[in-house]
């Protein structure tokens, strides 16, 4: 299904209240239309992944939604506040982790968190308590007094995310949060995000990584040249694009050539030639699995192993982002 490995039973994801909303948002820089009538809507306690190439407009959209960039036209609201009219209300309620770690390299990790807590209005003691809490949560205790500029990339990212959580924001924007991280740091960050969402935080995440969107997102919007060219759950997007496949592995004594011949007779297009002798058959609907089995059965071949493959998000991404002109039917948003 979607990203969350195990949605907790008490998840507040069901309240349906819209925490991030963009209506026909456009942003023009000079002669460049960076965003073109973008519509998104993210219910409380869910994760929307914005998927797109470099330059697709992901960071611009994050800029508009976090009230850092004025929009050219359209309307946008975060936590119920209009980005153009109530930017300070929004800043009180959001956390932002940008593409480049936004921490002060001169200050220690702890002092970075203290600085933000104080600026948010925390008293000295409350600020210290919150900083220590976050240092522990993000396993930064050992490096807490070291200057942030001596941190590794993974540590900086963690500190950055901790910094955006100081004010316990309801909405978090993560702009390519795992770019440049090693696999274990990525996994670590994903778990943190999943925990936040379980607590009811709403997340907008931009990423170039399909596995990240697949794992974390409840819904995905594919952005290309400033437009949302497709959106839906990972499963919906996969169903619309790409090919489902059945992979059949035969017993040693069965003849692969006979199997391929039988499948061709059933108007399928099997592909062979893999190292393990497996045969891959593209299919349309999942019920065609039965047709594969029947075709093989007709010539007395029994599959030793049979597996069903969903198209990956890579297929979705490559098909949609590279050939947006083919996508007319996909550009309507499915009802959220």
């Amino acid at each position: 299904m979607t990203g969350l490995a195990a949605p907790p039973p008490d998840s507040r994801a069901t309240t349906g209240e819209i925490m991030i909303e963009a209506q026909d948002v456009s942003k023009v820089f000079g002669s460049v239309r960076a965003l073109d009538s973008v519509n998104i809507s993210v219910p409380r306690g869910t994760v929307l992944a914005l998927l797109g190439h470099n330059g697709a407009g992901k960071t611009t959209l994050v800029g508009v939604l976090t009230a850092a960039l004025p929009l050219t036209s359209g309307r946008a609201a975060v936590a119920g506040f209009d980005v153009a009219r109530q930017p300070q209300e929004i800043r009180r309620r959001i956390g932002l982790t940008g593409q480049f770690a936004s921490v002060d390299g001169q200050l220690s990790g702890r002092d970075n968190l203290l600085l933000i807590a104080r600026l948010l209005g925390a008293g000295r003691r409350a600020a210290q308590a919150r900083a220590d809490e976050l240092l522990e949560l993000f396993a930064l205790g050992e490096v807490a007094t070291r200057r942030a500029r001596t941190y590794s990339g993974g540590l900086r990212r963690r500190l950055d995310l901790a910094a955006s959580l100081v004010g316990r924001p309801e909405v978090i924007f993560l702009d390519e949060p795992t770019t440049g991280l090693d696999p274990s740091s990525r996994l670590n960050l994903w778990e943190i995000v999943e925990n936040l969402v379980a607590d009811g935080t709403t997340v907008l995440l931009t990423t170039q990584y399909l596995d990240e969107a697949d794992r974390l997102a409840d819904s995905i919007a594919v952005l290309s040249a400033g437009s949302v060219i497709a959106s839906g759950t990972a499963a919906e997007l996969k169903a619309k694009v790409g090919q489902r496949t059945v992979t059949v592995t035969l017993d040693g004594q069965d003849d692969p050539a006979a199997a391929v011949e039988a499948l061709r007779r059933a108007s399928m297009e099997p592909v062979t030639g893999l190292d393990n002798g497996a045969i891959i058959i593209p299919i349309g609907a999942s019920k065609e699995i039965a047709a594969v089995i029947r075709a093989l059965d007709r010539v007395g071949i029994e599959a030793a192993e049979l597996s069903f493959g969903e198209p990956s998000l890579d297929d979705v991404y490559l098909t949609l982002a590279e050939q947006p002109s083919l996508l007319a039917p996909l550009s309507e948003r499915p009802s959220a």
């Binding site: 209506q23 609201a77 506040f81 948010l120 209005g121 004010g167 316990r168 309801e170």
Partner: peptide, 23 residues
């Protein structure tokens, strides 16, 4: 309309901001 200026949805933030002098 989610762009209602005073939505009941908005929960108050933990802290209420700092004065300019403190900033």
């Amino acid at each position: 309309d989610p762009i209602d200026p005073a939505p009941a949805a908005a929960t108050p933030p933990v802290w209420h901001g700092s004065s300019v002098l403190l900033q």
